[in-house]
Design a protein around this nucleic acid. Structure first.
Lengths: 210, 210, 210, 210
DNA sequence: CATGAATGAGATTTCATTCAT
DNA sequence: AATGAATGAAATCTCATTCAT
C-alpha cells in the first residue's frame, strides 16, 4: 500500500520532470508566449491533455520550471560554499558554481533572465512562491558574506553590500546571458576566471598618482 | 509641390511618433504580447486601422520604437563625448549620458532589456535593422576607446577591450533595469557615481600584500 | 455627429437582435450547452469573432436573449390589460396575451422553461438582472389582481392568491411547453379557451350533493 | 453455478444502483453537462473506468437513472391505486403517491423536469426506452380513468380526458418543481390538499348568476 | 473486476489584420 | 487619411472515453 503510493509518486515526479524539460526547450526557443501547449506536448511526446494532468495550466508549468531550477541552484550554491572558509572566497565559489550550473542548463537561462529582468508583471509576480523565496534567501546570504568581507578588509567599503551583490549578479547574469545566445563559448575555466576578474576589479582604473 | 510634400512628410513623422510613444506606454505595462493593437490605438486616441497606415504590422511598430530610441541614444552619446578628450573620460561621459537617457525614458528600458537580453528570438532578430547597426557602431566606437585607454595605461590590460565594454554595458544595463522596476530610485548624480564606481573598480578586492 | 451616433446605435441594435434570434434558434434545437458559438455564428451568417463584438461571452448572449423576451412579454401583458377593467378579466387577457406571444416565439419557450424550471444554477442565477425584475414585478401585479378578484367574490377564497398565480402560470407554462414541442397545435383561439377553461374550473369536480 | 450467477447479478445490480444515486446527486447540483464522469466516480468512491463497466457511456448512465425512477414511480402509483375504487378517487390517490415520491426523491425531480419539459433534444429523445414506455402506459391508464370519471358524471365533460390528464400532470409537476428548489416546503399533507384542490376546481371562478 | 493515466476532439475566447465606407 | 466592424486562425483548456496494468 505504502510502497504502491510511493511508486506512484515517484512515477509522477519523473513524468513531471520530463514535461518541465520539454517546456524548457520549447520556451527557450520560442519564448513563453510563443510556446504553445501543443508544441510542448509534442516535444514531450504526449497529448495536450496529459500536460494538464500534471500542471493546472500553462502558468503553473512555467512556475514549476522556474521553481525546480531555483531550488537546484540554491542547492548547488550552498553545497559549493559549504566547505569553504572566508566570506570572499565563499562568494567566489558560489559564483563559480553558478557558472557551472549555467553551462549545464543553458536553455533555462535565456528564459529566466527574460522573466527576471524585463518580464511581464503577471509572470514575474508568480515567482513569488517558493522559487522567489529561495532566490531571496540566497541573495540575503551573499549580502551577509559581502558585509563580512568588508569588515575583514577584504574588499572596498565605500559601497553598501547590497549594491555589491546586485553588481556581482548583474555581471554574471549579463555575461551568461550573452553566452547563452552566442555561437561559441570560452571553456568553463576561462569563463570563471574572466567573470571573477571583472567582478573583483572592474576596469581596473589606475589611480592618477600611481 | 516640394514644400507640400515636406509638410506631409513632417505630419506623418509627428503622427508616427505619437503612435510609437503610445505603444511604448502600453507595452511597458503589459508586455509585448499582452499589448493589443486596440490598446495601443486606444492610448493614441485613434482607430486600429490607422496604426496600419503607419506601420505594416505590430512587429514593425515595435521595431520603429526600438529604432527611434537606438538612434536617439546614439546621438546623445555621440554629443556627450564630442567635446571630451581622453578615451576613459569619453567612456565615462557616455555612460553618464546613457543614465540620463534612461531616466528620461524609463518605460522603454524594461521593454528593451527584455527583448535584448532574454528576448524572444522573433523580436530580437528584428533588431537587425538600422537599430542594430547603430548599436553595433556605438559599441565598436567604445571598444576602440577602451583599447586606447589600455594603451595609455589608464586601465588594466589583462582583459580584452571587447570584454570590457560588454562588462561596462552589463553593469549599466542590469542596474538600470533594476531601477526601472523599483519603487524609489536614487538621484541621478548618485546613480552615475555608483555605477561608474563599480565599473571602474568592481568589488575592489585588496591585494594580499597591500 | 449626434445623428451619426444614433445611426450607429441603431445598426448595432439591429445586428444584436439578429444574433440573439440566431442563438435562439440554435439553442432551442440543441440546448444551451449543445449550441456552440460556431453554430450560432453559422446560423447568423457571421464569423465567431463577430459575436464577441456584441456579447462579452456565451452567457451574456444567452442573457440578452432572455432579457429581450422578458421585457417584450412584460410589455405585451401590460398593454393587453391596460384598457380592461375587473381584476379577473385582466388576468384572463394577460393570459391570452401570453399565449399570443408564445405562438409568435415558440422556440424561445423551450429554452426558457428549461432554464426556469430545471435549470442549472449558474444560468438561472444570471437571470437576476432586469429580466428577473421584470418577471417578478409582473407576477406581483397579478397576485394583486387575484387578491382583488377574491375580495370582489369573483373567485374562490380558500387558496392564497400567491398560490393561485403560481397555479395559473404552471398550467399555462406546461401546456405551452407541451405544444412548443408538439407536431401540431390547436388554433390560437382554441388554445386560449382551453387553457383558461382549465385554469378557471380545473377538472370541474362535481360536488357530491349536486 | 446458477446461484453463483445469481449472486453476481445481484452484486452488479447493487453497484449500479450506487452509481446511479451518485450520478443523481452530482447532476442535481451541477446539471447534466456540468457533471463530469470524474465527479460522479468521485461521489461514488470508484474510478472513472469502473463506471464504464456498468454503463456504456454518460448518456446510458443518465438513462438508467431516469428508468429506475420511472419504474419506481409507476410501481408506487399502481400500488397506491390498487385497492381504491372509483376512477376519480384513483386519480387522486395516484396524485398523492406522486407527491409522496417527490418528497422522497426531491433531487431527481429538478433533473427530470429539466429534461422532460424544456430538455435538450438529445437527452429527451433518449427517454424513449423502457422509461418512456412506463411513463406512457401510466398516462394511458390515467386517461382511461378520467374518461370513466366523465362517464360517471364525476367531473366536467367539456374537455377531452387527454387534456385533463395533461393538465393534472402539469399542475403537479410545476408545483413540485417550484418546491424542489424552494427553501421551505409545506408539510406533505398540505401539499396534497393544495394541489388536489387546484386540480379539482382551478381558480373556482364563480358563475355570474350564482 | 477495478483502476486511473493518457488521449485528443472540440469548445470558448482572443486579437492581428483587412477593407468598405 | 481615417475609421472600426468584421474576420478567422490559433491558443488554452476540458472531459468523455479507452486500455494497459
Amino acid at each position: 500500500m505504502r510502497s504502491e503510493s510511493q511508486y506512484r509518486k515517484r512515477r509522477r515526479e519523473v513524468a513531471a520532470d520530463l514535461f518541465v524539460q520539454s517546456a524548457e526547450a520549447v520556451i527557450a526557443q520560442k519564448g513563453y508566449e510563443g510556446a504553445t501547449m501543443h508544441d510542448i506536448a509534442g516535444a514531450a511526446g504526449c497529448a495536450v491533455g496529459t500536460l494538464y494532468l500534471y500542471f493546472k495550466n500553462k502558468e503553473m508549468l512555467f512556475n514549476a520550471m522556474v521553481t525546480r531550477h531555483s531550488h537546484a541552484i540554491a542547492d548547488q550554491l550552498a553545497r559549493a560554499s559549504a566547505g569553504v572558509s572566508g566570506p570572499l572566497e565563499q562568494l567566489r565559489v558560489r559564483n563559480e558554481a553558478m557558472i557551472a550550473y549555467f553551462n549545464a542548463h543553458r536553455e533555462f537561462f535565456r528564459i529566466f533572465y527574460a522573466a527576471d529582468i524585463g518580464g511581464r508583471a503577471n509572470i514575474a509576480s508568480n515567482l513569488r512562491g517558493s522559487a522567489m523565496r529561495a532566490y531571496l534567501e540566497s541573495k540575503a546570504l551573499e549580502i551577509e558574506m559581502a558585509r563580512k568581507a568588508q569588515t575583514a578588509g577584504l574588499i572596498r567599503t565605500d559601497i553598501p553590500p547590497e549594491e555589491m551583490i546586485e553588481f556581482l549578479h548583474g555581471v554574471m547574469v549579463t555575461t551568461l546571458a550573452r553566452w547563452s545566445t552566442a555561437a561559441s563559448i570560452p571553456p568553463q575555466e576561462n569563463q570563471k576566471r574572466l567573470i571573477w576578474s571583472l567582478i573583483s576589479g572592474g576596469l581596473g582604473v589606475m589611480r592618477r598618482g600611481a
